[in-house]
Amino acid sequence: MDIMSKSKRSSKTVRYKRSLGKSYIDNWQLLVLFLPGLITLILFSYASMFGLLIAFKDYRIMEGVFASPWVGFEHFHTLFGGKDFPRVLRNTLVISISKLIVGFPMPIILALLLNEMRNKLYKSTIQTLSYLPHFFSWVTLGGIMLNVFSYNGPFNSILKMLGMNTSIDFFGNNAWFIVMLLVSSVWSGIGWSSIVYLASLSAVDESLYEAAMIDGAGRWKQTLHISIPTIMPTITTVLILNMGSILNGGFDQIFNMYNATVYEWSDIIDTYVYRQLESMDYSLGTAMGLFKSVVSLILVLSVNKITKKINDSESAVF
């Protein structure tokens, strides 16, 4: 049996190989169409990789990458050697992990809720409104947050009307400031991130729901036993990809919202490097990028491996 299937497979492979070469010739138009994408990928994703060299060099533009002098790990020393580095690393992890914990389930919940809606117009209105903030820059969003949640602002006025005695200093208190970061990142990202889940929800076979209804399952049970399991692969994939950006605390967001009083807990790797970055100091920036990429790669690979173990390689990315 084994031998048979093996020989069968190998003969198949040979045939396939032969036809592969022929199919290239037969479908040359498709290959030509594919070419621009391939070239772009090679140019921007692979050819640019040798630029990583400048993380170890004192890069001077006029001299070029190769002629610039080597400096070894000097830029990494600058990056990690500073007294502030442990603090900014801590802040980055605290902020991005709490963003993941709070922000990750939100779009899934929104997608499930939207999926249950009957009224098409209402649904699409909600959808549009929910991903509108995604298209605004953080300068605008940060400004709105600062206004709404300021010490004498509308939100505090409402709290006072409800009987609170003192205003909450949302932007002058480290803990509240992180809450503000979470609230604003959920607000800005919830709609946009829910699109992918909505897409995979729309692919669920209607007959599953019908069968469940005949079996007497209510809305909640249908969601629990049909909707969530069917979008589970999507959820895992998105989670794995999100792990890759764990060292990105969100520069634009924090930079537009923070002030000196909350700097202790809101200074992240990006803001820290931004302060040290002279214009055209590409080497230090590259060193930071390389460090982040390495950490991201390790995280993505390990989460992927864990997923493979648990899920029997069904929803792992690779």
Partner: peptide, 9 residues
């Protein structure tokens, strides 16, 4: 209370 607490932003 002379200085507005919002002076930080």
């Amino acid at each position: 209370e002379i200085i507005d607490p919002e002076f930080i932003t």
